[in-house]
Amino acid sequence: MAWLHIVAPKGAVPTANSQCECGRNRSAVGKPRVLALIEDHTAHRDQCLLRTPQEGRTAA
Rank of each mutant, 00 (worst) to 15 (best):
A60W: 15
G11Q: 12
N25D: 11
A12P: 03
L50T: 13
G11S: 09
H5V: 04
R33Y: 15
A60Q: 14
P32W: 15
G23V: 11
L49D: 06
T58A: 08
P14Q: 13
N17E: 06
V13Q: 02
P32T: 05
K31N: 05
S27W: 00
G56T: 15
R26E: 01
L35Q: 02
E39D: 14
P9L: 00
C22I: 08
A43L: 10
R26G: 08
C20G: 00
K31Q: 08
P9I: 00
L37G: 05
A59G: 14
H44C: 07
S18T: 04
N17T: 00
H44T: 07
C20D: 08
L4M: 04
W3T: 14
I6H: 06
R33C: 13
V13W: 02
G30D: 03
L4S: 05
N25E: 09
V7L: 07
V13T: 06
V7N: 13
A16M: 06
R33Q: 14
I38L: 15
I38D: 08
A2P: 10
L50H: 14
A2C: 13
C48I: 05
C20T: 09
A8L: 04
V13F: 00
E39I: 11
P32S: 05
N17P: 03
D46P: 07
K10M: 06
T52P: 01
I38V: 12
E55Y: 06
Q47G: 04
K10T: 05
Q54D: 06
D46Q: 03
S27Y: 09
T58K: 05
W3G: 09
G23A: 07
Q47V: 05
H44S: 04
M1H: 02
K10P: 09
S18L: 02
Q54F: 04
A8F: 00
C20R: 01
L49R: 09
P14F: 12
I38Y: 11
V7Y: 13
S18I: 01
A28E: 03
V29F: 01
N17G: 01
N25L: 12
C48H: 03
P9N: 05
S27E: 07
A8N: 01
D46M: 13
N17H: 02
G30A: 08
C20H: 00
H44P: 08
T58H: 13
L49W: 03
Q47F: 13
G30W: 12
A36Y: 02
G11D: 11
L50V: 11
C20Y: 08
L4A: 00
C20K: 01
R33A: 15
V34A: 09
R51I: 01
T52R: 00
A2E: 15
N25I: 10
G23L: 07
S27P: 00
E21G: 10
E21L: 10
L35S: 03
A36R: 12
D40H: 14
S27R: 01
C48K: 01
G56A: 14
E55P: 02
R24V: 14
L37I: 05
A36H: 13
E21I: 13
K10H: 05
S18P: 00
A8E: 14
R26T: 06
A36C: 05
P9D: 11
A12Q: 09
L4G: 04
C22Q: 08
S27D: 04
Q19F: 03
G30C: 12
R33D: 15
C20F: 00
C22H: 03
T15W: 06
P14W: 10
C22R: 06
